[in-house]
Amino acid sequence: MEKDTPINELLQKPIVAINIGVQDFAEALQDQGVRVVNVTWSPPAGGDAEMLAILEKLL
C-alpha cells in the first residue's frame, strides 16, 4: 500500500459523497454502498446561449 497521504487516509474511512447534477453519478456510488446526498442542478436555461442572453437582460 502507498504511504498514508491525506487522500488515502480519507478514503480508508466511510465516505459520504455530495453529488451535484447528473444523478447517474450518485447512483453509481450508491450501487457501491456509498452514502450519497444528491443535489438536483442543471445549467441555467439548459446552457442555451440565446436564452441566457435574453435572461441576462430580463431576470
Binding site: 442543471s42 441555467p44 436555461a45 439548459g46 436564452m51 435574453i54 435572461l55 430580463l58 431576470l59
Partner: peptide, 8 residues
C-alpha cells in the same frame, strides 16, 4: 416564463 426557462 423567465423562471421556467432559467430553471428548466
Amino acid at each position: 416564463i423567465r423562471k421556467v426557462v432559467q430553471t428548466g
